[in-house]
Simulated scan of single mutants.
Amino acid sequence: MTTHVQKPGWFTVNVMNRAVSWLTRRGISVWGSRVLAVRGRKSGAWRTTPVNLLTVDGQQYLLAPRGHVQWTHNMRAAGGGELRLGQHVDVFTATEIADDDKVPLLRAYLKRWKAEVGVFFGGVGPDSPEAELRRIAPNHPVFRITLTK
């Protein structure tokens, strides 16, 4: 596993993430946004962060555009969590996707959110050749979400 991480800047943490989280907590999804809640792997406390929920062929996925960040480590340890939109909470289990299976998911994610997160993909976009998407696949964890209730 690679340790690729792109930490967010001050504006993202203090303005964008807070604004998207505020809206999402009030039931307003911003381009598919949800608040991800997952138990911390060390503390066991709930940790939250805004995420983009990707749906491809009827399956739901969470993809980490910034790489192997804290929520991805926590997700591996917890095996699932909650997706929140306003008062609605979906409890789920998560299965990590192998690098070889990520290409269509990366392409779909970039097609939907490239304007928002494209900078984190090293110049690779939704129309890039398959080889380029395979090259960056190890840098971006992807989890298939299965709702449990």
Rank of each mutant, 00 (worst) to 15 (best):
A37W: 00
G125H: 10
V69D: 06
T55Q: 14
H68S: 07
K149Q: 13
T12L: 10
L133T: 05
V35N: 01
D101C: 05
V35D: 01
T93V: 12
Q59P: 02
F120I: 01
M1W: 10
P141E: 11
A45Q: 15
L36T: 07
P129E: 13
Q6P: 01
A45V: 12
L105P: 08
V103F: 10
W31R: 15
S128R: 02
Q59D: 15
L85Q: 08
V5S: 11
G122R: 10
R84Q: 10
G32D: 05
K102Y: 06
F121G: 03
N139I: 03
E130S: 11
G27P: 05
V15I: 14
R18C: 03
Q59R: 15
T146A: 15
R76Y: 03
T146S: 14
P129T: 10
G79W: 01
G44I: 09
T24V: 04
D99S: 13
T146E: 15
A131S: 15
A45I: 11
V117Q: 08
L85P: 01
R41Q: 12
G44Q: 11
V51K: 09
A77L: 02
E82W: 10
V15F: 09
Q59N: 14
A131F: 04
A98F: 04
S29C: 08
R41A: 10
T12R: 13
R144Y: 07
A78P: 08
E116T: 13
L105N: 07
V103H: 09
A94E: 06
L110H: 03
E96K: 08
Q6L: 13
W10Y: 13
I28K: 04
P141M: 10
K102A: 03
E132D: 15
A77P: 05
K111G: 11
F11T: 09
L83V: 07
S128E: 05
W71Y: 15
G27W: 02
G122M: 05
G125S: 13
P141R: 11
L105G: 06
V30D: 01
F11A: 13
H4L: 05
V142F: 04
V15A: 09
R18D: 01
N17W: 09
A108M: 07
A137Y: 06
N139V: 03
L54F: 10
M75A: 14
A94N: 08
F120H: 15
Q87M: 11
D127F: 02
H88Y: 07
N17L: 11
T72K: 02
I97L: 08
K111P: 01
V91T: 14
K42P: 01
N17Q: 15
A108P: 05
L110V: 06
G9Q: 11
L54S: 08
S21I: 02
L106H: 06
E116I: 05
V142M: 05
L85S: 01
A98V: 12
M1T: 12
N52V: 02
N52C: 10
A94V: 06
D57T: 09
N14H: 14
R26D: 02
T48V: 13
D100A: 15
V69L: 11
L53I: 12
V124P: 03
R41N: 07
R26Q: 12
P50W: 00
L54C: 09
R112V: 00
F120R: 08
